[in-house]
Every structure is written in structure tokens, then in C-alpha cells.
């Protein structure tokens, strides 16, 4: 699904969380959203998910204007916040079933896919464990498995690599993200881990104080062009940002 933002602004009272954000994400791309704490990364993802309404500007999915009330579009988008939302008494399997039904993706053929995801995220022994009894990482993996199983065209993830997932879960998520992109799905995630962003992004979106400073493939970022990087490419870019802010 093609995503296009035009002049998106979001204000929370005095705080201008997003300033005139414009970008286009083509189908099949993985986009990492980077930026300092409080830069507006989560706000951007929430706007795309319809949880937060833009103060001005528009969001288009496949050139169709997106609003919270547009349910046909919302069923094609999944969003996982930094803390997964699940009823504590629901078991993992019950949670997966509920999410699939909410997305109307509960056709019988989904069972093979669910098995694959549960195996991949090492959740098999936990399927009858209530969500409340899972560790943070396990709960996140369960919520993620449920959302991936819906096979939505857009996957929005807020800080998935700071969710407490174990290395196997992270590796599996990366593989799933690449696989989803290969099928033409779009994955947008926020992160603070630059190494991951460097390896798992078709495009990098750098936000600072609500403004999109850079939105380009990794190779075209100014840190690379100017040869500014001391360590990783993105570390150099962040150093630049900090210097310019000061």
C-alpha cells in the first residue's frame, strides 16, 4: 500500500509534535523512523494508525484520504504500541484468536500461519498462559504474532526492538518484516537502535523536534555523502543533528 503524507501537523496544546511532515512510502518498503526522545516518532505512527488526529495536513493510503472513520482502510493497517494492548486474563491463543476475528482474518487457512508464528516466536509452550503471566518480551511477541497473522498491508511498530524481545524474537521479526516487504506490504517502525535501522531499512526517516530532517535511502543520507560518520552512518548523522541544534 502506498502511503503519502502531505503537510502533516500535530499539536498537543503548546507542543508542536509534528511540523509540516510530508513523505511518501512506496509499497514493499521498510521504513525506520529515528530521532531523539520526544522528537515526534510515536506521534507520526499514531497519526498513521488513526489514534491521533492531525491538526492539519493529510494522510493518503493508496491515494485514498485516511480518517479514523475510514474502516476499510483501518482494517488494512496494524499498529502495535510500545506496550502491547491485551486483556490480562486472556491466554495467548485467545488473544491471537480475538485479534484475528477483529481484523476479520479468521479464515481456517490462517491456522498454518499462526502455528508458524507461534513457533517462530517461541510461544508454543505459552499458548494457554494468561497474558498477565507473561514477561514483557513474551507479551510483546504474542501481540506481534497476532498482528502479523492478520497479514495486514501496513505494519506500524512503535519501538519493537526495545520491547524486551529475546534475540530469537528480534531475528524472527526482522525475517518477517523482510518477508512482508517482499510480498508488497509496508513496514514502518520507530527505533533508537541505529545498527538495526542501518540493516533493516529501505528508507530512513529522521525526525527532530517534530520536523522530518531526512527521509531517504540509507546510502543517500548526508552523513554518508559528507563522510561525516565516525562510527556507523547514522551515528554520524545524529552527531550532526546535535551539533546543528547547539
Amino acid at each position: 500500500m502506498r502511503i503519502r503524507l502531505t503537510g502533516l501537523n500535530k499539536r498537543y496544546g503548546k507542543v508542536h509534535a509534528l511540523k509540516n511532515a510530508s513523505l511518501t512510502v512506496e509499497p514493499g518498503q521498510i521504513v525506520s523512523v529515528l530521532g531523539p526522545n520526544g522528537a515526534g516518532k510515536t506521534t507520526l505512527l499514531r497519526c498513521l494508525a488513526g489514534i491521533v488526529g492531525a491538526t492539519s495536513g493529510d494522510i493518503f493510503f493508496d491515494e485514498e484520504r485516511f480518517t479514523r472513520g475510514n474502516m476499510s482502510l483501518r482494517r488494512r493497517i496494524t499498529f502495535l504500541p510500545d506496550f502491547p494492548i491485551a486483556f490480562p486474563h486472556n491466554t495467548v491463543l485467545r488473544h491471537v484468536g480475538m485479534v484475528l476475528r477483529l481484523y476479520e482474518a479468521d479464515q481456517p487457512s490462517v491456522e498454518t500461519r499462526v502455528m508458524e508464528l507461534l513457533r517462530g516466536f517461541d510461544l508454543m509452550p505459552l499458548i494457554d498462559t494468561p497474558m498477565a503471566q507473561l514477561s514483557r518480551g513474551q507479551a510483546y511477541k504474542a501481540a506481534l504474532a497476532a498482528l502479523i497473522a492478520t497479514d495486514s498491508e501496513v505494519l506500524l511498530l512503535d519501538e519493537p526492538f526495545a520491547s524486551g524481545m529475546d534475540p530469537n524474537g528480534i531475528t524472527f521479526l526482522k525475517r518477517e518484516a523482510r518477508e512482508a516487504a517482499r510480498r508488497g506490504h509496508t513496514v514502518i517502525y520507530s527505533t533508537q537502535i541505529l545498527d538495526i535501522a542501518e540493516k533493516l531499512s529501505d528508507r530512513v526517516c529522521v525526525i527532530d523536534r517534530g520536523e522530518i530532517r531526512h527521509y531517504a535511502p540509507l546510502a543517500e543520507l548526508p552523513g554518508v555523502v559528507a563522510g561525516h560518520a565516525n562510527g556507523g552512518v547514522l551515528e554520524g548523522l545524529f552527531q550532526q543533528l546535535r551539533e546543528s541544534a547547539q
Binding site: 490480562p88 486474563h89 491466554t91 491463543l93 484468536g97 484475528l100 491456522e111
Partner: peptide, 29 residues
């Protein structure tokens, strides 16, 4: 504070993991 999952009314009883998935019980609500 945490009631036993099996005791909750209206819940599907836990089954063997594989069976629970392959028989689609978890999708039944």
C-alpha cells in the same frame, strides 16, 4: 486477583496446544 483461566465463564477450555490450533478452537470466540 487472578482467577483460574479454566474457571472463567464463557472461555474455551484449554486443549492440547496443537489440537487447539489445528481444530481452530481459538478462532471460535
Amino acid at each position: 486477583r487472578e482467577p483460574d483461566v479454566e474457571e472463567l465463564p464463557g472461555q474455551v477450555k484449554p486443549l492440547d496446544p496443537d489440537a487447539a490450533i489445528w481444530q481452530g478452537h481459538f478462532l471460535q470466540g
